[in-house]
C-alpha cells in the first residue's frame, strides 16, 4: 500500500483543460481539476453533466479530444491498463463486476498490475509462483475483511446484494494499490444505513493514504465527506470550493433544480429520486436472490 510519509500535500491528479467531444456534442469542456494527497474531492452536477465522461477521460477509457491528465507529475497515456498500472483505480456507475467469478477472484483480478507471474510460471508452478499466489490471496482477503465481505469470499459476484456489489467493486479497485481512487456514484441504490457505512469506508480509504475523487448525487453525503467539491454543468466546471461555498452558490442551486432552494431538503429529494431510480435494478436482483 502506498503509505504517504510526506505531510506536505502533493498533487496526485492534475487534469488540465480536458475536453471531450462526441461529434457535435461537447460532453466535457475544458475542465481542469486537481486532487491532492489525503484529500476527498467531490464531483457533482445534474444528469448528463459529463461527470462520468470526465472520469472516462481520466482513466483512459476515452481519449480526450484536448487536454492532458497527469498523475503525480507524469502525464498518463490514454490506455486504461497503463492508467491503473500508474496508480489510478476506479469503480463504475453501473456496476461492472466479473459476474461469474467469485468475490475473491474479483479482488485477485484487481491485483493484476501488482503481480508479475506470467504463463510460464503458472505452468511450472515454482516456489515463486506459489509465494506470489499466496501473498495475493492474503492481500485480497485483507481487503475483503476491510470492506466486510470476507464471509462471502466464495460466492459468485453476481449473487451478492446490490450494496455489497458496490463494496466489492471498491475492494477490487483497492487491490490494485492505487494512489487515487475514482468512485462513480458509490452509494447509488443504497439505503441510508448502507450509505453511512460507505461514508465510513471512504474515510477509512482516505486514512490509508489514498486520495479519493467521488461522483455523487446525494448532496448530504458529498458535503459530509468531501474536503473540496467541484460542480460540473453541461460539461463545464461551474464552481469549485469547500462544501460550504458550493452549497450556497446560486448557480449550483439553479443548475440543479432550476429553482432556488433552501438548504438541504431539495437536494435530498433529488438524491432520493436518484436513489430510487438506481435501486430499481437492485430490487430486481434481490427478488432473484430469493428464488
Amino acid at each position: 500500500m502506498n503509505t504517504m510519509t510526506t505531510t506536505t500535500t502533493t498533487t496526485v491528479l492534475d487534469a488540465s483543460d480536458v475536453t471531450m467531444r462526441f461529434g457535435g456534442l461537447t460532453a466535457v469542456r475544458s475542465v481542469s481539476l486537481t486532487v491532492n494527497s489525503g484529500e476527498i474531492v467531490g464531483l457533482i452536477g445534474p444528469n448528463g453533466a459529463g461527470k462520468t465522461t470526465f472520469f472516462n477521460c481520466l482513466t483512459g477509457l476515452y481519449v480526450p479530444t484536448e487536454g492532458k491528465v497527469s498523475y503525480k507529475g507524469t502525464v498518463l497515456p490514454p490506455k486504461p491498463h497503463l492508467v491503473t498500472q500508474a496508480g489510478i483505480a476506479r469503480t463504475f456507475q453501473n456496476i461492472r463486476l466479473f459476474a461469474n467469478m467469485t468475490v475473491l477472484e474479483n479482488v485477485l483480478v484487481g491485483r493484476h498490475t501488482r503481480t508479475k507471474e506470467g504463463l510460464w510460471s503458472a505452468l511450472l508452478r515454482g516456489p515463486g509462483f506459489k509465494r506470489a499466489e499466496k501473498e495475493s490471496k492474503e492481500r485480497a482477503m485483507e481487503l475483503l475483511e476491510f470492506t466486510g465481505l470476507a464471509a462471502k469470499a466464495d460466492h459468485l459476484a453476481r449473487n451478492l446484494p446490490y450494496g455489497e456489489q458496490r463494496k466489492l467493486e471498491i475492494a477490487r479497485a483497492l487491490a490494485s494499490e492505487p494512489g487515487l481512487l475514482l468512485l462513480d456514484e458509490p452509494t447509488a441504490g443504497m439505503n441510508p444505513q448502507e450509505t453511512r457505512a460507505a461514508e465510513e469506508l471512504i474515510f477509512a480509504i482516505r486514512d490509508m493514504g489514498i486520495a479519493v475523487l467521488v461522483i455523487e448525487h446525494d448532496m448530504r453525503f458529498i458535503f459530509n465527506l468531501c474536503d473540496r467539491v467541484a460542480c460540473l454543468v453541461q460539461g463545464e466546471k461551474l464552481v469549485e470550493g469547500t462544501p460550504e461555498v458550493v452549497q450556497s452558490d446560486e448557480r449550483v442551486i439553479a443548475a440543479y433544480l432550476g429553482t432556488p432552494f433552501e438548504g438541504a431538503p431539495g437536494a435530498d429529494e433529488l438524491a432520493e429520486v436518484e436513489a430510487a431510480e438506481a435501486a430499481a435494478p437492485s430490487t430486481n436482483s434481490r427478488t432473484e436472490e430469493a428464488q
Binding site: T59, L61, K79, P80, H81, T84, Q85, A89, R90, F92, R96, L97, F98, A99, N100, M101, E105, L108, V109, G110, R111, H112, T113, T115, E117, G118, L119, S121, A122, F129, A132, E133, S136, R172, A173, S176
Partner: peptide, 23 residues
C-alpha cells in the same frame, strides 16, 4: 493463475478488465 483469471475477466467484461490493469 493470474493469467487464467485475466482471461476469464476479459471474457466477463473487457472494459472492467482493462480498467483493472489487464492489457
Amino acid at each position: 493463475s493470474r493469467i487464467g483469471r485475466a482471461w476469464v475477466a476479459i471474457r466477463e467484461d473487457e472494459t472492467a478488465a482493462t480498467a483493472m490493469g489487464i492489457n
